[in-house]
């Protein structure tokens, strides 16, 4: 059996709640367990972390998985095959904002009904807007695209 294609995972941490940030970093470490290249983008990289989160961040850095600030978001979005956006529940405001450079890849932004589109001009589908959204998402995925849920 051939080896699976490499996974490039992006964990974008939008959440302000410290416990959620810690869980996002634990998830990022988890994603590395089968060889994925993981990149973490923190909306506020200078915010103090809970001890568990700090350990997870150090573990990621030790194994060469970058943990960086929002300036790297677009490049990470453009190359990721798996995207996890960890955020506080809507309608909490988003601070991470993908720009046009994020469109370099085949990326579809899925927006919960209570969340505005990340930025004008990018490929956006509003979840719950019509009954057919799951099939549109599947069409995109099966065509080789990635999705980010905001």
């Amino acid at each position: 059996m051939s080896a699976p294609p490499p996974v490039r995972a992006l964990v974008a941490v939008e959440a302000a709640a410290p416990a959620t940030v810690a869980e996002a970093l634990r998830a990022a470490v988890g994603l590395t367990l089968r060889g994925a290249a993981v990149e973490v983008i923190l909306a506020d990289p200078d915010r103090p972390l809970l001890p568990d989160a700090a350990r997870a961040r150090a573990t990621l850095a030790l194994f060469g998985h970058p943990v960086r600030g929002p300036a790297h978001l677009d490049a990470a979005l453009a190359s990721a095959t798996v995207i996890e956006v960890w955020r506080d529940p809507p309608p909490a405001a988003l601070t991470l904002r993908p720009g046009p450079a994020a469109e370099a890849g085949a990326l579809l932004h899925l927006c919960r009904s209570t969340v505005a589109a990340p930025v004008a001009g990018v490929q956006v589908l509003h979840l719950d807007a019509d009954d057919g959204w799951p099939d549109r998402v599947l069409d995109h995925l099966l065509a080789g695209g990635a999705v980010a849920v905001w």
Binding site: P4, P5, P6, V7, A9, A24, A27, G30, L31, T32, L33, R34, A36, T81, V82, I83, E84, V85, W86, R87, L110, V137, L141, L142, A146, V147, V149
Partner: peptide, 14 residues
């Protein structure tokens, strides 16, 4: 990690 295997397609509600 297994759910996000490169042979799969993934949607994350996180």
């Amino acid at each position: 990690a297994a759910v996000t295997d490169g042979r799969h397609r993934v949607v994350a509600f996180t």
